[in-house]
Amino acid sequence: MIADILTVAGKELREMLMFGETRGRSKMSLVVLVLIFGVVIPLQNGREWVTSPISAMVWAWMPYMWVYSVVADSFAGERERHTLEALLATRLSDRAILFGKLLAALAYGFTLTWAILLVSLVTVNVAARGGGLLLFSPLMALAALVFSILISGLSASIGVLVSLRAGSVRQAQQWMSFGMLILFLPLMLIQFIPRAWLESVGTTVSNADPLQIGIWAAAALLVVEVVFLAIAMRLFQRSKLILD
């Protein structure tokens, strides 16, 4: 089972790194992403890139964007390119196919996030030049690790679920964009919340133990992720996929 999951994930990752018409073009896209999020934005933020909780929030959600860009292809793409039926006719179990595709999306989001984070650390340190090494605090580093896995996983499980049901890659991407909108809706609505409420929430949060908040947030994410995964497992039926 593990070997099968890794086989599927390996092929998926290879194809993800070949999105675009040629390998050269896909490498170019990756370089542009690394330049924007690993160099330009950290340079604009300077020292705050490693100290501000705002930047922590940015890179916590980064994996969603990376995973979102590739996961829509997982089933909808195979269906569109007529490769799904051949895959379903192999000895692979339903779970090996499903988890293989999930693992690939998760690994892609997680690896890309950390690669960009490391590049951003180098950028910030080179820009600061002197005054000691600038690093994330241990708590922020731990949060980055845990949340990048959880957000990658959440994005992957939503994406796979959407991709299972969508008729085409484009439709899956549209649904995923809508999902992203819902996720970011609270941030956009902040300006409409009365100032007094915000201040009271701010006071509560600043008085609370950040570790405890992190643990609760991680647990909530995990629960949501498990729910989406359970739905995806239930929806993964060979006969349904064949006839779709």
């Binding site: 092929k11 390119r81 007529h82 000895r91």
Partner: peptide
């Protein structure tokens, strides 16, 4: 059954990017 069979179905099912 699937473990012991090979199948070329309606479409060739090859990954064209590979």
């Amino acid at each position: 059954v699937r473990a012991r069979c090979g199948a070329l179905l309606e479409h060739h099912g090859l990954y064209e990017r590979l």
